[in-house]
């Protein structure tokens, strides 16, 4: 799973139902490979099909380069795969479902789970379903980040995982966070 030459990867993570698979589909150049299966145990309450292995899509770049878009399994018992998926990754897109019972706790959980990866790269956070439930607000997420000991600025946006614009903006802000000197391609 290590990034091959000319193959790079961006990892999408988050709890079940946050929209990882949809977000990948929104920007992928290929029909995403979905290794979905019928949900079992508690996940079935939120979603009929959930990702138990992983999903992946792809951005094709000029010259044959590819950026793989990997979605992590949403169920905690598959968390052994997360370390595999992050090896050589550019950064992390964390999607959080605002309608879940404790989205701030979800955020802390995933940031802890990906602590090493985030420390050496960067994370951006997309809050999904905020149109259905407006709280926690973005300010509360930022405050919770600081209270969790993350002092560096993290982009946190409301996001519709179905929207190319929203998901694209998450990825673009990830890149700019990693390299603020990076010029926009259309500058």
């Amino acid at each position: 799973m290590r990034a091959k030459r000319n193959h790079h990867k961006i990892v999408f993570t988050g709890p079940v139902g946050a929209g990882k698979t949809t977000a990948i589909a929104s920007i992928s150049d290929i029909e995403p490979v979905r290794t979905d299966a019928s949900a079992s145990d508690m996940t079935i309450k939120r979603k009929n099909n959930t990702t138990v292995a992983m999903d992946y899509g792809m951005l094709r770049l000029p010259g044959g380069e590819k950026v793989m878009l990997y979605g992590t399994p949403g169920q905690e018992r598959f968390d052994f795969m997360w370390e595999i998926l992050t090896e050589g990754g550019i950064g992390l897109v964390l999607l959080l479902d605002n309608t879940r019972v404790q989205p701030l706790q979800d955020m802390r959980f995933f940031l802890d789970a990906f602590r090493d990866f985030v420390a050496r790269t960067q994370v951006v956070i997309g809050i999904t379903h905020s149109d259905e439930k407006a709280t926690p607000s973005l300010s509360e997420y930022h405050s919770a980040l600081r209270a969790h000991g993350i002092e560096r600025p993290v982009p946190i946006f409301e996001a519709d995982a179905r929207s190319f614009d929203d998901v694209s903006l998450l990825v673009r802000s990830l890149l700019h966070s990693l390299d603020p000197g990076l010029e926009d391609a259309d500058a």
Partner: peptide, 19 residues
């Protein structure tokens, strides 16, 4: 500049012109 800048610019270009 970061060594990844070229790659990042290509990704940005892809996303900005993909719609």
């Amino acid at each position: 500049p970061a060594p990844t800048r070229g790659l990042f610019r290509r990704i940005l270009g892809k996303l900005l012109h993909a719609r």
